[in-house]
Design a protein around this nucleic acid. Structure first.
Lengths: 143, 143
DNA sequence: TATTGTTATACTCTATAACTATA
DNA sequence: TATAGTTATAGAGTATAACAATA
């Protein structure tokens, strides 16, 4: 590996810190989800649908899961009354998925609890440090 | 909620950034694991055992999982030749779990690939920014 | 013919409850 | 009696392959 390229030793420090922080973050998310009898993926589905109306295929693409997996997830959430399949007038194939009232409320509660749970972790930082951290994190881009 | 307490709006920015970055990070970890036919949890087990010899119960406590879950995980990994159960001479109940040669190599390869995969995300930062990010992340503490 | 979604199947992950062996 | 681990069981998440409906 050429010097300055790839995973150099200077990067290892950040990578380790990122992995550690991510497990803490995922722990909070999983705990919030479990408190509402949701899996992490179900919580993500609610969060996505809170902002966007999506088709089954769009959910699959966004989450990086197979469409058959989404069918099951949506089945169970629909049975719980959290969301609904809605026919798409423009295309008889692409079904829209939308949150119900109950789903909207649960998504909002979940988001608030995630923020609350993570705020505890962030409490050690000053407001300026928190802003700096947010800025640096946002400059990481997906591979 | 009192001002300055809990999840104030100043924190929301960091929380969102943290959640986004964590999903990117977990995506890399999951992809590396899948490339070796491992689940994320299995990869974590290898990473833990790379540094520490642990009992079944210690693994369970560290990962926040039930002991019965660890039994299954270790079963499958042992069947693949990645690790071994070793009797504990000091206590006939607490079994030690240790990596095999193959497991050690896989753990090392996985760690390198995670670092490589995340280095791509970190490339947009200067060395000084990367250090600052690592420092800030390390100041987040588990809830 | 290509795309969207579902179903059947199989495997992993996970927890609960009941159990065995050791301390 | 308490602790460590396993097993049986059940439910959820996941992908693959085969399928139906629509474009």
């Amino acid at each position: 590996m050429a010097p300055g390229q790839g995973a150099g030793s200077a990067d290892l420090e950040v990578v380790d810190a990122l992995v550690r922080a991510s497990f803490v973050t995922m722990g909070v998310l999983t705990k919030v989800a479990a408190a509402h009898d949701l899996s992490l993926t179900q919580l993500r589905v609610l969060a996505i649908l809170r902002d966007h109306r999506a088709t089954m295929g769009e959910l699959a693409a966004y989450l990086g899961l197979d469409r058959s997996t989404i069918s099951g997830l949506v089945d169970r959430a629909e049975k719980r009354g959290l969301l609904q399949r809605v026919a798409n007038p423009d295309d008889g194939r692409g079904i829209h998925v939308v949150l119900t009232e109950v789903g909207v409320r649960l998504a909002a509660t979940g988001a608030a609890q995630v923020a609350e749970g993570l705020a505890a972790s962030v409490n050690g930082l000053s407001a300026a440090e928190a802003r700096r951290l947010a800025t640096l994190l946002d400059r990481l881009h997906a591979p």
